[in-house]
Structure formats: structure tokens, C-alpha cells
Amino acid sequence: MTATRVPFHDEILLLDPSGAVFLSAARMLVVADLHFEKSSSAALQGSLLPPYDTRITLLKLQRVVNLYQPMSLVFLGDSFHDRTGHNRLHTADFALLRKLAAKTRIIWVTGNHDPDLDSLPGEIVPCWQEGNICLRHEAQIINSHYEISGHFHPKASIMTRGKRITRPCFAMHNKRLMLPAFGTYTGGLDVNAAGIASLFPAGGQVFLLGKDRLFRFAMPIV
């Protein structure tokens, strides 16, 4: 696993191939859009998807936390797939969360899928200010400040040798960093789609997630 180092205001960010970002000065780990309990949410609607997603996401998170040993861990919204998701968490999964909370300070930023979080280890906030960097679920159109967000699940497609390769990605320009979704059952939105492209009017860079490294390309992708 090789993270990509990028400067961001007074921070050095480590973009991790798992989709997490580590703010090295603040020793803060940030993950977005975990969509815990998406499978049980689908089950409520009659689709009995393999119920392993929450556990897989948690174990992946545990590995990243062990790697970076952060002082704090920020969930950047849509941590649960629906409003009642946190009530459906399996006891074993809840225990895993507690274990994480014992190691590091946890901050839950709420998202549009999970505005009513409660009874979770850690603080629950609408957004988080870390020095001059604002951490929020959904990017704001006008960002005069440095901002890290999630929400859109950015992904990008590269055409090479007649083959289209699509991966979740970080999207970045100047003061804005957008994280890929960290969850197991999370799809994505192409960075060329209006929703994301309008947030990067001057283009920028994308970092596609690989097995153990990132792949950088210019945005918009042609």
C-alpha cells in the first residue's frame, strides 16, 4: 500500500488506496460514505443481498486505522445507508466500532442518508472545522475555504487499449478534495457528470484507486 502525498493548505494529505485520507499534521483520518447496513436496508425492501457489507467495511477501516494510528477518525456523512441504520447494527459490528473508539476519537459528520444519528460512540456533528480546513458531507458550490467532502461517490473511467477501466477516485482542485465512497456496496458517479463537474469548473486531478497504489489523471478525463 503506497499512499499519495499531496499538499493541501498547511497540511500534507496522504491519499490512501483504500479511499481514506490522512491529514498528517492533525493526525486525523477521514473516510466518507460508508453506507453501513445497506444490505439490511435492501432486505427491508425485499432484496436479500449478502449481509456481509458492514463487517467488510469495518474490517477495512480497522486496517487503515492500524496503519495510520490517527488521533481522530472522521466519518464524513452517509455512514449509515438510512435513517434507522444505526439501530440495525449487529452487536458484533457495534463491538468493532467500540474497539475503534477506544483507540481514537471518533467524529460523525451527518449526511443526507443519516441525519438522525444517535447512540454511537463519539461526537455527532453537522460539519467539522479542522484548522482552516472544513470537513463536510456535501461540497458547497462556493468554497472560499479549504474543504474536504464526500457525498458524490466520485469514480472515473480511463479508456486504454480499447478497454474501459472504471474505478472510484479522489477528485481534487485547489481548495477542494472530494473523497470516494468507502463502503462495500457503494456505487459511484462519474466525475464527468454534471453533479461533480460543476464543482470543478476549472478541472483538476483525479486519483483512481488501485490495488495498492493510486493512479493520477487530469480532470476532465477525455
Partner: peptide, 24 residues
Amino acid sequence: ERVTGEATEDELLLEAGALLDDAM
């Protein structure tokens, strides 16, 4: 025909990235 090599997706991405870097 489209030629199918043995490279994994990651190798192809690396190659595509390098190609663009060279061009740019």
C-alpha cells in the same frame, strides 16, 4: 480485432498514466 493482452487492469492504468505523463 481488439487485442487482449495479459496485463491486469492496474498495469493498464499505470501504462495509461505514464503515457499521459509523457505526453504532458
